[in-house]
């Protein structure tokens, strides 16, 4: 929450920008995920990339409508681990979805408008559904998370 414990449009806008930053990273990261998958298995990665791009663009439009400056995409990113196999690719996708989920939950914590919370909870659910698919591909057990996006 804000330093004084109160929520206002400023806390919400800052959290919206944190989600934009996470979505930028996810869009970039899914390029790597897709490249590490066989051509006939790239569908879910392509769909996820589109979903994250759409979410990012929606948030950017929302921020701009408020007169706020959306954070730009970084010039480059480093992978958290080498992506050398299909399992690595799925594991990276899990990292991406879980990172985005953390940003959406942070937004839920900071938001003041119910419409923003509705957007956040919808996108958070979509991220977790994708994460379930990737955890399955990565051989992770369990494939579900009781509290997506919440700090452990």
């Amino acid at each position: 929450m804000a330093d004084d414990g109160l929520l206002d449009e400023g806390t919400e806008t800052a959290a919206l920008n944190e989600v934009v930053a996470a979505e930028h990273a996810a869009v970039w990261g899914y390029g790597t995920v897709g490249a590490a998958l066989p051509e006939d298995a790239r569908g879910p990665a392509a769909a996820a990339e589109v979903a994250h791009r759409d979410a990012r663009d929606r948030l950017v439009a929302l921020l701009e409508s408020r007169g706020a400056d959306p954070v730009p995409r970084r010039a480059g990113y480093s992978l958290p681990f080498p992506v050398l196999s299909v399992v690595d690719a799925a594991t990276l996708a899990v990292v991406l979805e879980e990172g985005v989920s953390a940003a959406w939950v942070r937004l839920l914590d900071q938001a003041v408008e119910s419409a923003v919370r509705e957007l956040a909870v919808e996108e958070l659910g979509a991220a977790e559904v994708r994460a379930v698919g990737w955890r399955t591909s990565a051989g992770r057990i369990p494939v579900t998370d009781a509290f997506p996006g919440l700090p452990r």
């Binding site: 959290a15 944190e18 989600v19 930053a21 996470a22 979505e23 930028h24 990273a25 996810a26 970039w28 990261g29 970084r74 010039a75 480059g76 990113y77 480093s78 992978l79 958290p80 990292v95 991406l96 990172g99 985005v100 953390a102 940003a103 942070r106």
Partner: peptide, 8 residues
């Protein structure tokens, strides 16, 4: 470059 861990 920043590490690709898309937390806020």
């Amino acid at each position: 470059p920043p590490v690709l861990v898309p937390v806020p």
